[in-house]
Nucleic acid binder design. Structure first.
Length: 298
RNA sequence: GGCGGGUUGGCGGAGAGGUUACGCACCGGAUUGCAAAUCCGUGUAGACCGGUUCGAUUCCGGUACCCGCCU
């Protein structure tokens, strides 16, 4: 099964980028590496946290050894205190797409793949000032306050109970004077149409995946996750995107003496499992046309 | 052996004679720019047996188990 799939990919039209999506701990990076080493191409990261330079172990980024075997892109290229988002990722990928190498895009961030193959509204990035104002307004006056500033159409279109969604709508309107739904209505064509790519979705039985997740965090600890987190201890800022890496807040809490290592591991494992569930939900609902790949099936 | 307290959904943990406590986990879902984020939804649980009552998880009695104190 596995070999058939790989052979098919190796024999496929080399102008088509290979897309590999899948939940954490599914082994998708291994597949990407195998394809890259056997047929060439550059492996491109499609994971929101593997872009961070400071979390090689925690974000399960390819090892230096792996990186020597094939060219890798968009891994660890963002520093710990920088913002990053789908928009920037898309800009990064567009540049690579225009290059000569075949792209093997791998990752677990469903939003990235959806934006890549279905398009993303061309909204200018939110300025730092507006972001901070929004944060402040939300914290001080609550979600309703931001909601009141929106137009009816937007209010009807977004999840008004979700502060993130409401804040985003508010930020877009405030910054561009145009509602987010209006922007979305004029979403440009995707950078890469699905039929111009080879989209593969790792489809792993829940119990099997949970079994792998169960041992995953312990392995990270053995690889030195604790040291990695310790290096970030003094500059720790929980509001940064990079601080959202699963395991980071948990291990920071342990280093701060707020909990035991055992408890930190348990909570990180739970968070990983929950994350995988959300990924599955995304894949199920938005990636129906992707070719399923079940390497662990018996 | 005696006296007292306790026994609530997977776990933690409340109140009330007749509405869903709640939190966590689990499961399902949403999600076009912080997405490893954020949010939404789902639980006939009340140790067991009997009684009182129109109605008991809530009152009464007994049984079992647990925890104290006493002999």
């Amino acid at each position: 099964m596995q070999d058939i799939m790989i052979n098919e990919i190796l024999a496929s039209d080399p102008t088509k980028p290979v897309l590999i999506a899948g939940p954490t701990a599914s082994g998708k990076s291994d597949l990407a590496l195998e394809i890259a080493t056997r047929s060439g191409g550059v492996i491109v990261n499609a994971d929101a946290l593997q872009v961070y330079e400071n979390w090689r172990i925690l974000s399960a980024r390819p090892s230096k050894n792996d990186e020597d075997k094939a060219p890798h892109s968009l891994y660890g290229h963002i520093s710990w205190d920088q913002d990053y988002s789908v928009g920037e990722w898309l800009r990064d990928v567009r540049i690579l797409l225009n290059g000569d190498n075949r792209l093997i895009i791998v990752g677990g961030t469903g939003l990235y793949f959806t934006a890549l193959t279905q398009g993303l509204a061309d909204i200018p990035p939110t300025s730092q000032e507006i972001r901070e104002t929004a944060n402040k307004l939300l914290a001080q006056h609550g979600i309703q306050h931001l909601l009141n500033a929106l137009d009816d159409e937007t209010r009807a279109a977004i999840d008004v109970q979700n502060p993130m969604r409401v804040q985003r709508a508010w930020e877009v309107l405030t910054q561009t004077n145009r509602s987010i739904v209006d922007w979305q209505r004029t979403t440009p064509a995707p950078i890469l149409r699905l039929d111009r790519a080879l989209p593969i979705l790792f489809d792993i039985e829940k119990d099997i995946l949970n079994g792998r997740i169960e041992t995953r965090f312990q392995k990270m600890i053995e690889l030195g996750a604790l040291e990695e987190v310790r290096e970030n201890y003094d500059r720790w800022d929980p509001t940064l995107l990079s601080s959202k890496a699963i395991g980071a807040p948990e291990l920071i809490a342990y280093l701060a003496g707020e909990t035991t290592l055992d408890d930190a591991c348990t909570r990180a494992t739970i968070a990983t499992r929950q994350f995988a569930k959300r990924q599955r939900t995304w894949f199920r609902s938005k990636m129906g046309l992707w070719r399923r790949y079940s390497p662990h099936a018996k």
